[in-house]
Design a protein around this nucleic acid. Sequence first.
DNA 1: TCCATATTTCGATTATCATAGAAATATGGA
DNA 2: TCCATATTTCTATGATAATCGAAATATGGA
Lengths: 112, 112
Amino acid sequence: METNAAVLALSALAQTSRLAVFRALVQAGPAGLAAGRIAEVTGIPPSSLSFHLKELTHAVLAHARQDGRFVIYTAQFDTMDALLGFLTENCCGGNPCASVCAPVCPPSKEPT
Amino acid sequence: METNAAVLALSALAQTSRLAVFRALVQAGPAGLAAGRIAEVTGIPPSSLSFHLKELTHAVLAHARQDGRFVIYTAQFDTMDALLGFLTENCCGGNPCASVCAPVCPPSKEPT
DNA sequence: TCCATATTTCGATTATCATAGAAATATGGA
DNA sequence: TCCATATTTCTATGATAATCGAAATATGGA
């Protein structure tokens, strides 16, 4: 991931409403959520939500697909992945931050 | 790390100049860099730089210490660490993003 | 003390972002 | 076709962020 894309993704997440939306999408997993459902869950009014969804989509952190009358949004996990990679590589270079990974990996137990 | 702190840190990094400054600090390591040196390296004029440094400091991503006439800025690795933890936990929950960590941990095989 | 240098604050300007009601558009079903 | 519902665009408004020159404030050394 290049710097511009990283700044774009960071900007998209650096906003309370959008972070909440993105987290909801992550929780929903690959199935995603309809825009209206996101509005319900987050309490953001439709026009504001639409604005934020466009922002997330533009940053390639979310993806929209039409499903009948609904528009289903899903998290773009690979972009998030790339962002984490960028931050780890460029903002932790050879330094303590790597410790984030340690607790995650041990394969001894099942995460559901 | 709680949501507010995460948004604060993300906002701090979601800006081209500040990301450049932070990367320079990370590269410099615990020794840090004097403000003037950062200005040199990044080409940001003094008053703008001061503004951005305050922003990074406020987000606890940088720390200032006085050294004679100089003010030395260092990256706050632990905050970055916490941010990565927050993103991994809240924005990748049980999903693909964990792959960022994969290359670091498994001792059995090499991915590339 | 006085000066040179380092950095920050002030202040004014411009640009960008966030908010949300109301109107427009799209879609499926009756 | 016509309606109800889902979502987006339009539009206006207020709020916050970014920029940077010039002036103010340290600090150490002569």
